[in-house]
Design a protein around this nucleic acid. Structure first.
Lengths: 154, 154
DNA sequence: TTCGATTCGATAGCTACCTAACAAATATTG
DNA sequence: CAATATTTGTTAGGTAGCTATCGAATCGAA
């Protein structure tokens, strides 16, 4: 009764990609839990703390998530008082996101969970093998994405 | 303004693992959408159709998800009439899951989305590179998981 | 200039994951 | 045997993703 299939079969690359993603998420969540922050909330804060005020729609592009997803995350951050969201004066459709004072204060206390994950997961790994892995994953991802857009549009 | 960080930095292995997982999920979802089934629901059906009735807690182990997560998925499948859930006669804590007649009927119409994903993503890829990739991902996952259990318990 | 298309954000409703807390059943142990 | 511990499943509440749809603002083109 051994385990067989998660996303895709057996112990395929796909199954391991999923497991790595979940392990990394678990680590990130456990680092951020004391601060009551989710992982994507952290990314938004990172952006605003390091690059300054950003249009909401640019954050969508950078994080590669849907507008609707970010909309919820932003409203959570606003509710917590970490971010504020104002109408852009030129284009009234767009919203400008800006970290608040208390957001910046929290940000200063925060560890960088991504650095920790990188260190634990890949420290000492062979750079060549890492490069191969990256390329294999990237190629597979591209193929799937092309198939989805191609198949649905043509 | 290029994209920087998803889970972990830049175009790290971790970031690509996440992207591959989401691309595969998107493909799986799009194949299953006409049948009104989610990906994990499909895995549960797969198990019950191919291995026969299974204890709920064994499904938890095989799918590597939390009891609470499966609980919700099972109740969805029961609501749809695809699976039934009965008390075990010996151990009244446990529930036995069994595919229903209409579940089996649906199962016969269903394509295998995992085969499709494997074909699109990895067909023609170098087996050696795939093996390397699998090993890199596996090692990284193990390291993260060890760190989580180790760090929290010791 | 007006009418239609596009863009941006919000909302509703869904899947899939998680933790925490609880109740019931069973196992263990003093 | 009784008290305690463990196992199993559910519920509540949270995060993170998605699609579909809507309304408001803006842009373009006839």
């Amino acid at each position: 009764m051994e385990d067989k299939r998660e996303i895709m079969k057996h112990d395929s690359v796909g199954a391991w990609a999923k497991r790595l993603y979940f392990a990394a998420r678990a680590m990130m969540d456990s680092v951020l839990r004391p601060y009551d922050l989710g992982s994507t909330q952290w990314y938004v804060l990172y952006q605003l703390a390091n690059e300054g005020p950003t249009m909401q729609r640019d954050v969508v592009r950078m994080l590669r998530i849907e507008r609707a997803t970010l909309s919820g995350i932003v409203s959570t951050l606003v509710r917590k008082g970490l971010v504020d969201q104002t109408l852009d004066s030129v284009d009234q459709r767009q919203r400008m996101l800006r970290i608040t004072r208390s957001g910046r204060k929290l940000w200063k206390e925060l560890p960088d969970p991504t650095a920790l994950i990188l260190a634990i997961a890949f420290d000492g790994a062979d750079p060549i093998e890492l490069a191969i892995t990256r390329r294999v994953l990237q190629t597979a991802t591209q193929r799937l994405n092309e198939h989805i857009s191609g198949g649905n549009q043509a």
